[in-house]
Design a protein around this nucleic acid. Sequence first.
RNA 1: GGCAGGUUGCCCGAGUGGCCAAAGGGAUCUGACUGUAAAUCAGACGGCAACGCCUACGCAGGUUCGAACCCUGCACCUGCCA
Length: 419
Amino acid sequence: MTHILDDLDARGLLAHSTDPDALRAALSAGPVTYYVGFDPTAPSLHVGNLLQLLTARRLQMAGHKPLILVGGSTGLIGDPKQTGERSMNTKETVAEWVDKIRDQVSAFVDFDGPNGATIVNNLDWTQELNTIDFLRDIGKHFPVNRMLARDVVSSRLETGISYTEFSYVLLQSLDFLELYRRYGCVLQTGGSDQWGNLTAGVELIRRADAGKAHALATPLVTKADGTKFGKTESGTVWLDPELMSPYAFYQSWIQAEDSKVGDYLKQFTFLEVDQIDAVMAEHLEKPGLRAAQRLLATEMTALVHGSHEAIAAELASSALFGRGALEDLPESTLSAALQEAGVVHLATGDSPTLVDALVASGLADSKSAARRAIADGGAYVNNERVTDPDALLADGVLMHGSWAVLRKGKRSVAGVKLV
RNA sequence: GGCAGGUUGCCCGAGUGGCCAAAGGGAUCUGACUGUAAAUCAGACGGCAACGCCUACGCAGGUUCGAACCCUGCACCUGCCA
């Protein structure tokens, strides 16, 4: 049986860890209670958070007990980031997001059995916290000179950082200490950007309780150009289907770069490393088939939205991007595919123009943008390029009498049904 | 509270009375090549009833034929002093 640390390492999920030998021994000795936290900074988690959830799940599958923390209090404070001060959200908003995120994380861990997961909210132990006690019991363990030396803080000294954000690390460290005391939690995991917060907690446990705890960080997942993974052209890749349809989610994975798809398969899916290596070997032979991307997209969509949605997204994608001609698709297939991609209904009586349709479908942000797309030669109806900026939608041949497949550029497709 | 500097388009950043819808870079979009990949090259990149009009350079007023640019007030940010 492979040691969990070796599996994580083989998958490229280990960036840093405190005292690797001691951590390895602890994980071998028996079930370890560990935690990973998510702050409610939005109504949904995104794929960056997903990596942390899946890593937590890997540890659980290896027999360890997860605590999933939702940051009801830390979400009110804001983890400092390089770019500047966060805008504060109201307590009501944060409370709403806490509920949503609690529901989301619940889908990724197992609640049954001796190592069933527990979801905790740090508001439970901080909202009644007394300021004097906090400063005496927690604050005393934090040397300000060390806090100032942290990268995020020092980079913010020029532009400014509020005391609120400066204090964030104390709260996260307090969480670790609290979970150590309440649940015997001795390991915190997170992204490498969390390393400072993670080790601060380890240190607090040592100073306050003379306890031994560990931290483990996954690397920052990047795209081929080195930028942060999880943003597409249109924005963040959300897990909530209300914010991003399963089809769009599937599309975001299928567009993975060749140079990254192997890493993603290892880091995100539960396929065996050997199996992934075999797929990648084939992929290198015939990259044009994009077999690795297809596998990745299907696996991830199934993991997040269920296999039913994964199949639907896959079918829609192959119908719309497949080699076959659109007119060969039966109406039921076409309609189902377009439902996934997004459909707008337009009234035939209004004799909508292509420009109108591009805007209505969301493929273009404005009429100017739609005209620009047409002028650039990037607008297609039923896979035929249209270059007339004043074209009416009905000028082309409608599929099955009422459907038009709109495409802008290579990747963006939407359906229009004339009614 | 005082003094100094700052606030420009998605981001960074030039511009300091007309030639400014505003240089340059990044991001983004499109095309060519291709594979819903990368790299490269090229074009686009506020809006609209579109050779014109409207909106825009922190906010609100003012001076002027004309303001991102000058003046006044306000807000916020940074630094120094208290």
